[in-house]
Amino acid sequence: MANQFKARQQHYRRWQQKPIEAAFSVLILSLILWAVWSTGSWLIAGADWRVVTHNLPLYAFGSYPADQRWRPLVWMAALLLLTITTLSGDHLPQPLKRLQPFLPWAWILMVPAGVVLLAGSANLQAVPSRAWGGLTLTLLLTTASGFLALPMGIGLAIGRTSNLGLVAMLCRIYIDLMRAVPLIAVLFFGQLLLPLFLPVEIEINRVLRAVMAFALFAAAYVAEDVRGGLQSIPRTQAEAAAALGLNASLTMRLVILPQAMRIAVPALTNQAIGLLQNTSLMAILGLIELLGISRSLLANPEYIGRHLEVYVWLAGVYWLLCSGMALLAKRIERQGRLSTSS
């Protein structure tokens, strides 16, 4: 108690000694209060939220046929459920806990399941990919290209650090080239030029082309993060594995890579969050994902000049998604640490 009082006294003395700093702080504080007040009153009274509230299905599903919307809804609900299950970890009720080892498989299966659900199959009416949109498409682009980029990036990283000189050089050229060009150029390549490199009879839809471009681009960045992990594993690990009689590929798979990946997780999280944010670039190239659908809504004369409402709403959605991903990554990181210590 006495200590606290003393500290406060010192605090006041510090302010008295620095009148300019104190005045500056008061000024900033009043500016913040003013900003909070005006933002708050705009959010409640000034804004016209109809552009958001009347179009929620569009933001969620794009122009997916209304009677089939349960399909993207089921997929997104499964994604949310899987996220929550992964996040709750040890707090799961006992019967569910036994399913935990299957979580990684469930995550890997999410992408093909999503594609089948959205595109349709034997019993489901076929829906062309140009009708996919909104949050569904944003999430599909992110998960599909993320799950493709991860193995590609790991392969590139191993190739770049391998002792096959030629392979290392080729991987290096690919990684450096990809990291030198802007993403939008790669996406442009995927949308307009990729078909030129394929035989006439093969036609891939625009969503798949976008996923391929994102994956090719992200793989180069994943590779550099994984390489960072690989290089931080001391040589003695490989030597110990060799002494135990493991061959090169087993050493990589069982000893080096698991440790390297654990180190790379924080960097890879940032890549994943970046990937989610970057899917918005497809709005420039004509896909109606979350940002694309908003741009077409703003072009509607009914919602003219409602930019701020839409952008604030989108910022909130992206912020929530990115924070969710950051939480997931923290969870994975902790699990990694636990499994090392046990």
Binding site: Q277, L281, I284, H307, L308, Y311, Y318, W319, S323
Partner: peptide, 18 residues
């Protein structure tokens, strides 16, 4: 913390249109 969680493209559109 805030700026890094919002896509750059959205921020550019905000600066321009709003």
């Amino acid at each position: 913390g805030f700026i890094r969680q919002i896509p750059l493209l959205l921020q550019l559109l905000f600066w321009y249109f709003v």
